[in-house]
Each structure stands twice: as C-alpha cells, then as structure tokens.
Design a protein around this nucleic acid. Sequence first.
DNA 1: TGATTATGTCACTTGACAGTGACTATTGCT
DNA 2: AGCAATAGTCACTGTCAAGTGACATAATCA
Lengths: 200, 200
Amino acid sequence: MERDRKTTRTKLMDAVERIAIRDGFEACGVNAIAQEAGVDKVLIYRYFGGVDGLVSSVIAERAAWPNTAALGDGASAGSALASALIDQARDIRARPLAQHAVAWEATGHADREITRPISQGREAQLTALATALRARHLLPARFDLEAMGALVTAGLTMLASRTDHGVPFFGLDVEHDADWRRIEKAAGTILRALLDPSDA
Amino acid sequence: MERDRKTTRTKLMDAVERIAIRDGFEACGVNAIAQEAGVDKVLIYRYFGGVDGLVSSVIAERAAWPNTAALGDGASAGSALASALIDQARDIRARPLAQHAVAWEATGHADREITRPISQGREAQLTALATALRARHLLPARFDLEAMGALVTAGLTMLASRTDHGVPFFGLDVEHDADWRRIEKAAGTILRALLDPSDA
DNA sequence: TGATTATGTCACTTGACAGTGACTATTGCT
DNA sequence: AGCAATAGTCACTGTCAAGTGACATAATCA
C-alpha cells in the first residue's frame, strides 16, 4: 500500500464522483465517501478540511459549467448562438457528473458556495456569449436576447440533465440519442427563426 | 388539545409542506416532521404508514402538476399553445411547494413512486395538449411539436422553479415579476413564430 | 543512524435517525 | 355507567452519522 497524499486525494475525489453519479451529491457524507474510497475518513478532514471542501473541489475541477470556446464565427447570428448553446448542453449531457451538479444547483438546496462553479460559470459563459454575439451581429430590434437565451438554455440543460433519469418528458426520452437530436434541432430552429433576418 | 384524526393529518401535511419549502423534500424525516407538526411521530406511521406515504399524499394532493384546463380556443395554434404552457409555468411559479416538487422530480433522486403525480401529470397534460392542438389546428409540416414543447416546457418549468432561488440565470432573476414576464414573452414569441403561418 | 514530519489506522464520543411496544386518555356508542 | 375503539404519549432499541484524539507506520533529511 502506497503512501501518497496525491493518490489519496484522487481516490477521495473519485469516490465522491461515483457516489454523486449513483446517488446524488446529497448522499455524499464523510462515512460513505471514506468507505467508497477505501480510505480513512479522517483524511477527508486533513486534506480537504471536511466534506464541503472535498465536494467543492470535485465540482470545481470536474463538474464546472462547460467552457466551450465561444461563438462559431462566420455563420448567422442564429446558428452561431444555437451551436454555442447546443455545445454546452451536449457537454453536460455527456458527463453524468455535470448533469447531477447542474440538477443539484437547480434545486437551490446546495450550499451556494459549493455550487458556485456551476452558476458562476454559466453566467460568465452566457454573458460572454451575449457580448460576442452583439459585437458581431446586428440583432433584430425588440429581440430579448437574455430572456430567449435563458429560456432555451434552461430547457436544454434541464433536458440534458435528465439523461439516465428514466422518466420521459413530453414522451421524449433524452437518454436516446435520437430523441436528444430532436431537442437540439428544435433549439436550432427556434434561434435561427427569431434571430436571423427571415427576409434574407 | 383537540383529538381529531383529520386535524392531525392536516397538521402533518402542513408540516411537510413547510419543511419542503424551507429545506426541500430531502429534509423530510420522521423526527423533523413530527417536531414541526407538534405531534408524536408514531402518528405518521399510523395515519400514513410512514414518511413515504405522508410525503406521497402531500405531493399528490398539494403539489401535483398544474391541471390548467386546456387550450384556449379561438386563437391561433401558436398563441393557444403558448398560453397553455405559460399558464402551467405560472401556476408552478406561484406555488413554492410545486416548485420544490418539480425540482425534486428533476433530480431523479426522489422515489419514482412518490413523484409520480408530477411526472405523470406533466405527461398527461402535455399529451392532452398535443392532441387538442392537432385536432383543432393544422400544424406546419416538419414542425416537431413534442421536441419543441418539451424544450419550451422544460425551460419554463426550470426557470419557474428557480423562484426564491437567489441565483440569477443569464442575468435574469425570475423572482422579479418583470424578469419573469420577459421569459413568458419569449416563450410566446417562439411558439407563435414557429407555429403560426408567418405569411398570414 | 536518529529525529522529524507526513501518512494512515483505530477507537471513541456525541448526537440524530427510523422504527416499535407498552402505556394513558379520550371519544362515542349502547 | 360501562365498554370498545380511537387518539395520543412515552420510553426504548439499534443503526448510522459527524467529528476528534491518540496512536502506529512509513518517508525524508540531517
């Protein structure tokens, strides 16, 4: 048995990840984590100051909001924004840990401090997107980018975080790629229809 | 102190409601509920068979998915669907308990049996809406009603359940009526733009 | 080699928790 | 009044939880 702080830290973070994916972040207690990691719980206190610190690290390092570059340039405003938002959602959908983190943040029962990488990352990413979009494209008058972006992003992320959920939403089971593609397509249609000059 | 089964049942359900609103449904344990209700915990077992039964009753009777009649007739397909979906979301937004229930269902960590009134109500309502819409209106070809409806509904409900959440979403704080109205408007714009013949 | 520090183990306290059995008091009916 | 069913109280068990102090073992460096 190797004695290495780094290895132990990783074991603990891996354990949190597994538990969070399996049972949710609410289920991450000291004892459960220690057992899952095969490590003494006192090390959680020593290396992370407690469960909060550990979970915090896991979220910050492994479940932060996707940072998918920026706007795809060249295309129209609608398709640029669409592809950016879809990329984010696709990234969340692909990472179970991120799904759980997003859902957890959404409940509002998580410690704000701990889920900050989620909410703050989301805000940073979206406002950056908005700025870039406004810099490169002339948006239609009376188009409420924030409201529209919030609605589409909320829809996409809520649905993305329902992967492996087992309960359908309007008959769609986002677990299936085919159904998810329909959602992506709907988002694209919406943004292009409202953002791109229809009389082009 | 009055001895009445009905009164006690109500006290218990009220207690669950208060705890769920304050700390979430995950925080509803026998002891917490009994203390909050000012009632002995054994009565939870007697009258509801346990916490699950109690919480189940609360969700079924007080937090089910909104059953807001049906399509407003007369108007166009887009505005009919929009007003129906917005009514649902508005109803959720107005009832803190429903917000928490919806968010809880979305995490996927709740017992499926218990949150069934949410998911099943949602499915029933949405499919009824779809049927009614298709019966009364001719939808545009290649318009994916399910995907579009799922996306908009998911967005609306996720945002609606963020009331009293304290963390903004794309800069919008849905707690403020003004911001919420922008969301509603965005949903309406989307559905009308894609569902109503633009060349009318 | 010996001393120091880092790493990991163990045992324990304290409290919260779910659940149950035995009891008392009240109500309602005859 | 007397009896049975209902409503509510109390005390208790065993389990799991967080957190801590004392100890043992390995690595590092003088």
